[in-house]
């Protein structure tokens, strides 16, 4: 049981190292965005696992908070790429080229 948690943690840490390599060397910016995004997910999983491995399952609350926060920064990044501004509501559709230029 404990061995299971430990090996899962080690596997997650390995995955984190691989993601880190992608985030550091990533040829394009999008590789980095993707790496950072899944890095956040891995961190959430790692926190949950560590909570159970250390016998304190209440760490799950923090893992939950991380998941929420990860979403905020992902939205910020996507808005940055799409609109170059944060002052755009999420429901707005993509600006269609109206003026026929």
């Amino acid at each position: 049981m404990n061995l299971l948690l430990a090996s899962a943690t080690v596997a997650l840490l390995l995955g984190i190292v691989l993601l880190l390599i992608r985030a550091l060397m990533g040829p394009t910016l999008y590789d980095r965005v993707l790496a950072v995004n899944s890095f956040g997910t891995k961190t959430v999983l790692l926190l949950g696992l560590l909570g159970f491995a250390m016998g304190r399952p209440d760490f799950l609350d923090i893992a939950l908070l991380y998941a929420l926060i990860n979403f905020v920064s992902t939205i910020a990044i996507l808005k940055f790429f799409r609109y170059r501004s944060f002052q755009v509501s999420l429901s707005r559709r993509a600006p269609a080229p109206k003026e026929g230029s």
């Binding site: 880190l20 985030a23 550091l24 990533g26 910016l29 980095r32 965005v33 790496a35 950072v36 890095f39 956040g40 961190t43 790692l46 926190l47 560590l50 760490f59 923090i62 991380y66 920064s73 990044i77």
Partner: peptide, 26 residues
């Protein structure tokens, strides 16, 4: 590249927050 730096600083704070949890500074 400033964008990569911003991304990596996000990674940095996620990892350091995990480390704070390990140190019991929830």
């Amino acid at each position: 590249s400033l964008f990569a730096i911003v991304m990596l600083s996000g990674v940095y704070s996620l990892v350091s927050a995990t480390w704070f949890v390990l140190l019991d500074a929830v």
